[in-house]
Design a binder for these strands. Structure first.
Length: 812
RNA sequence: GCCCGGGUGGCGAAAUCGGCAGACGCAAAGGACUUAAAAUCCUUUUCACCGCAAGGUGAGUGCGGGUUCAAUUCCCGCCCCGGGCACCA
């Protein structure tokens, strides 16, 4: 057969058409094979796939295809994170309904997906904006409501007075509205829905032990910090006069005799009683000023409330202040300020002239007098009544117990993580399935009335609490309990709800009686490999873990964690710069397929760097891959059916060895570290060797090499692999063939190359049979022509010999 | 500020357990083929010095120290870059 030029358009189009209706990516339902669930994070349907997506999917696809070839029953699904703000913005800008815009985008992106031949089981496709899916969001919500895991409380939202609407955090720029850059955003308290993720904080922490082998260390670390468990003490300072308690949380109760004031958060509920009208206005201004601001840019500020409170340990009076740096959302929203032993308190008290009273001395030093900065380490407690002389740690333990005995406090644990606020004052999301009845209060929508369907014709103006409030047919309902007139909840759910359990739905995507059949979950879960961007290390992955635990507790699944293994791939940047729409440098997937071909684009992103690192898209780099695939294709086509092969000879053994070495390398990488960049390098080396020895290799090993090449390229470049497979007489899809097994004997070199060093410097190499004894190695090394001159006239002080590796002579 | 990563040729990178630094690719230069170009194939390519040449010598993995026969790899200190968290009491 004469050599054929590599025409990616022609090859990819041909197989694209043939594969159109094929069903070989379907996961089997009742399979005797071992299962493998590989999942890539589902995309937001923005309208186009870019090279970042291609990287994510190319990693997952390579693994899926490899696992199929290794005989696994693979589940490899794809779906759409289809709710969210951009659809509403598009509606405002182009007067296009969010649903229509979203479905249009999905169709366009799916086309691109197919063009890249990612091996998805499209029968399991899930779109989170469909009632068939989101009804189960509502169902889970009702289950959580039943168990007290969903509750309502007042919480602050960003409010733009000009738009007269709630803003998402990303719509607040430098404390101002994104559409009115001169309008500062206010904070308004609205009744909103929360999920009690804090109930699971300890489980989320503890179960990380199960993930330690399969999840990246840094993701677990980020989650650990995010949950932020800290042990301390709660204690009540009682207001002088009324006796009303102000509860504070501290991790340093051992410093409490040094507390020179109490500071409450500006939105602390007690301020209603403590403050006069002017004070309340000041507090409100403080809250607004912090809207979505970087705390580092805000100076510490506060004012005296005019009240004092009594220190429960010392009995001393301390003034009560309001301070902007005290967070309502952490601990109790109130602190005791110990300026001598806390940097923030020191800064605040220094500013307002509040006394600094040291009560902890360093173990090997005296107590500070008029300190210039806070001493924050543990030490020996002083001037603290009965606790004086104890070490910080001991004092903390005993003082906590004391608080409990006396009833003014207790040992307490607080978390940085807060309950998950899921209310969004938005249209394009899952309606929260409750009804507000003037008589019966908050009533859940009965299960048999699910789904609460999002109305289609809604005017989205960008003003008002929620667009749904203006849809009378949606809002006005009868109370399920009393039958009287009632109002439907108009908040919708955070879209992180959608992505917290979608991977379960893939296992049973068309079920209309349950979110899924537990038997199917038991078969497929846990996910064997989850792959996505590290930017989801915290929110999505913590929420998913929380949902899994909640679902386990309501009895629909058995597993504790969603994913056994997680892989976080690095970002893709373009020609050295971060890709962004505004810069106009987004590398689109369709352009890649058109210009370079899907195979080349996929292989480029795998080749340019190991998958966990950042990749820089470079046009010339992609051209290099295209060149390589052309080399493979031409080599294959000109050697298939060739008749002038030489007789079997020495070159055969060498090329076979190289072939099996390559296979060994790739197989081992797929099973461990996924450095596909070096896998592809090793295939390139093999191809280079085939080019160099092409005239000398006999028919049989050349045929083996070509067939094996098509098999080992199949996970990376399915189109051209398939074409070569077919040309070489192979039947069926190449990625359904058995993965070629390497023969360790064939991969082995005949002789070991042993490096000879003198004083650690390379001076020669000798080739010896594997396992040659140290003494013989030394003798051979000493006799080597290249080495001799460096030993002549020198005294050998020491010799190190490592069999099959090296000999090092230390000389004087 | 705290906590993680990382720093290797002109560039992306490799060296998987302390044992040959720079595999593979890009870019560049030279050659072959061609009327010519593209494409393709082959060769060279860390730096400095010596040599007409084959070749040789030395230095070199952010900087400074240390451990070791041997360090890109381990330890200590510092500089720079990236990421996460950031008044979390």
């Amino acid at each position: 057969m004469p050599e054929k030029p590599y025409d990616h358009h022609q090859i990819e189009l041909k197989w694209h058409e043939r594969w159109q209706d094929a069903d070989f990516y379907k996961a089997e339902e009742n399979s005797a094979k071992p299962k493998f669930y590989v999942l890539e994070m589902l995309p937001y349907p923005s309208g186009t796939l870019h090279i970042g997506h291609i990287r994510n999917y190319s990693i997952g696809d390579a693994l899926a295809r490899y696992k199929w070839m290794r005989g696994f029953n693979v589940l490899h699904p794809m779906g759409w994170d289809a709710f969210g703000l951009p659809a509403e913005n598009a509606a405002i800008q182009n007067n296009r309904p969010p649903r229509e815009w979203t479905l249009h985008n999905i169709a366009a992106m799916k086309k691109t997906h197919r063009r890249f031949a990612f091996s998805y089981d499209w029968d399991r496709e899930v779109s989170t904006c469909e009632p068939e899916y989101y009804r189960w969001n509502q169902w889970f919500f009702l289950k959580m409501l039943e168990r007290g895991l969903a509750y309502r409380k007042k919480a602050l939202v960003n409010w733009c007075p000009k738009c007269a609407t709630v803003l998402a955090n990303e719509q607040v720029v430098d404390g101002c509205c994104w559409r009115h850059e001169d309008t500062p955003v206010e904070q308004r308290a609205l009744e909103q829905w929360f999920l009690k993720i804090t109930d699971y904080a300890d489980q989320l922490l503890e179960d990380m032990a199960q993930l330690e082998r399969g999840w990246p260390e840094r993701v677990l670390l980020m989650q650990r910090n995010w949950i932020g468990r800290s042990e301390g003490t709660e204690a009540d300072f009682h207001l002088d006069g009324s006796g009303e308690p102000i509860r504070v949380f501290t991790t340093r109760v051992d410093t409490i005799y040094g507390a020179t004031c109490v500071i409450v958060a500006p939105e602390h509920p007690l301020n209603e009683k403590l403050l006069d009208a002017a004070g309340k206005a000041r507090a409100k201004a403080m809250v607004d000023a912090q809207a979505n601001r970087d705390p580092a840019d805000i100076d510490k500020e506060g004012f005296f409330t005019g009240h004092d409170a009594v220190n429960p340990y010392s009995g001393e009076k301390a003034p009560v202040w309001v301070g902007n740096f005290v967070l309502m959302g952490y601990g109790t929203g109130a602190i005791m300020a110990v300026p001598a032993h806390d940097e923030r308190d020191f800064e605040f008290c220094a500013k307002y002239g509040i006394p600094v009273r040291p009560v902890i001395r360093p173990v090997d030093d005296v107590l500070a007098v008029n300190p210039k900065q806070a001493f924050t380490d543990d030490g020996v407690v002083e001037n603290s009544g009965p606790w004086s002389g104890q070490h910080s740690e001991e004092a903390r333990r005993k003082m906590s117990l004391f608080a409990e005995e006396k009833g003014f406090g207790k040992a307490a644990i607080t978390y940085r993580i807060k309950d998950w606020g899921i209310s969004r004052q938005r249209y394009w999301g899952t309606p929260i399935p409750v009804i507000h009845c003037p008589k019966d209060g908050v009533i859940p929508v009965p299960e048999n009335q699910l789904p609460v369907v999002l109305p289609e014709r809604v005017e989205i103006t960008g003003s008002g609490r929620s667009p749904l409030e203006n849809v009378p047919a949606f809002v006005n309902v009868t109370c399920p309990k009393c039958g009287g007139a009632a109002k439907r909840e108009t908040d919708t759910m955070d879209t992180f709800i959608d992505s917290s359990w979608y991977f379960y739905r893939y296992c049973d995507p068309h079920n209309d009686r349950m979110p899924f059949d537990p038997v199917k979950i038991a078969y497929w879960f846990e996910i064997d490999q989850y792959i996505g961007g590290v930017e989801h290390a915290i929110l999505h992955l913590i929420y998913s873990r929380f949902f899994t635990k909640m679902m386990r507790d309501i009895g629909v699944i058995q597993n504790n964690e969603p994913a056994r293994r997680l892989f976080t791939q690095g970002m893709v940047i373009a020609e050295g710069a971060k890709m962004s729409k505004s810069k106009g440098n987004v590398v689109g997937a369709d352009m890649l397929a058109e210009k370079f071909g899907a195979d080349t684009a996929r292989m480029f992103v795998l080749f340019a760097a190991p998958p966990e690192k950042e990749v820089d898209w470079r046009q010339e780099g992609a051209e290099g891959i295209s060149r390589f695939l052309g080399r493979v294709y031409r080599l294959a086509t000109r050697n298939l059916g060739r008749t002038d092969f030489p007789a079997p000879n020495d070159a055969d053994r060498a090329i076979r060895r190289k072939l099996h070495q390559t296979l060994k390398k790739i197989t081992e990488d797929f099973e461990s570290r996924w450095h596909f960049n070096t896998c592809i390098s090793s295939i390139m080396e093999l191809v280079n060797a085939l080019y160099a020895e092409e005239a000398n290799i006999s028919a049989e090993p050349m045929g083996e090499a070509v067939r094996t090449l098509s098999l080992m390229l199949a996970p990376f470049a399915p189109y051209v692999s398939q074409e070569i497979w077919e040309e070489s007489g192979g039947q069926g899809p190449v990625f359904r063939q058995a993965w070629p097994v390497f023969d360790p004997e064939l991969a082995k070199e005949d002789l070991a190359e042993v490096v000879v060093q003198v004083n650690g410097k390379l001076r020669g190499r000798i080739h010896v049979p594997f396992g040659t004894a140290k003494e013989e190695l030394e003798a051979l090394a000493r006799a080597d022509e290249k080495v001799k001159p460096f030993l002549d006239g020198k005294q050998i002080v020491k010799t190190i010999a490592v069999p099959d590796k090296l000999v090092n002579f230390v000389v004087k």
